[in-house]
Amino acid sequence: MAEATADEAVAGPEPSYGRVREGLRAYRLIIAMWIRSTMAYRASFVMSTLANLVATALDFVAILLMFSQVDVLGGYRLPEVAFLYGLSATAFGLADLTIGSMDRLGRRVRDGTLDTLLVRPAPVLAQVAADRFALRRLGRVTQGACVLGYALAVLPIAWTPLKAAMIPLMLLSGGLIFCAVFVAGAAFQFVAQDASEVQNSFTYGGQTLLQYPPSVFAKDLVRGVTFVLPLAFVNWLPAVYVLGRPYPLGLPAWVAFTPPLVAAGCCALAGLAWRTGLRSYRSTGS
């Protein structure tokens, strides 16, 4: 950029920051603003968080109602299902908390407000992800964590350090996998602006699916969420290892330890999808 030098001299040296660091910084700044504003209305925050907690607990109420009629579902007892539920709900809750606003992207494209993000000196992904950061979504995380806590308290698991380490690992990589789904879904909305509900199928639908044992579902469906949209790595595969249950699809035991890799792969693919989507938006301005 030889021609830039003259102007550089006027404007002073332009600091160069890594894109990721810049993105995280912008994300942090924006969510801090939203949290401050939420905290200004503490009572309202407590109420909405509680409402969020109750609303998200309905899924588990359905499971409890089922177990009021039966002792096992797909060969799993209530604490085991609660274990799957807690992992799925907490991992999803973390993703929903951090970047759940991504599903508003289509609306932003439609009403043109995405443009206002494009003229700011921060990566658009970070700005969209942090937009309208809703601390009340802690309700879902709390609710999931409570169910998980109950499951851990009553399950007769022979704990080993490895098994214990699997819990945070699952929540973290599970959360990342769901984040990737959110980002990929948002990228799809660059193309189809009204299709935010499709994303719901994979996010809310995915977490609902994972709340039940894999043995409940048809093999093809399990194959689909293992090899195509790898949701099975959020909890099913690592959880069967912890529970000492048979692996679905006769998969080898080591797949239980692959979630971090799968999560990294998903994030990379979602990032690619996002870049493609944003590029297409910037060339079509649709």
Binding site: M66, D194, G205, L221
Partner: peptide, 24 residues
């Protein structure tokens, strides 16, 4: 588009719930 997306979502949830009902 929103309607098509909604139909898709209803179908996905239908499939998931159908299997849990089958188990029940």
């Amino acid at each position: 588009t929103a309607t098509a997306a909604g139909v898709f979502t209803n179908t996905v949830f239908g499939v998931i719930l159908a299997y849990t009902y089958l188990a029940l």
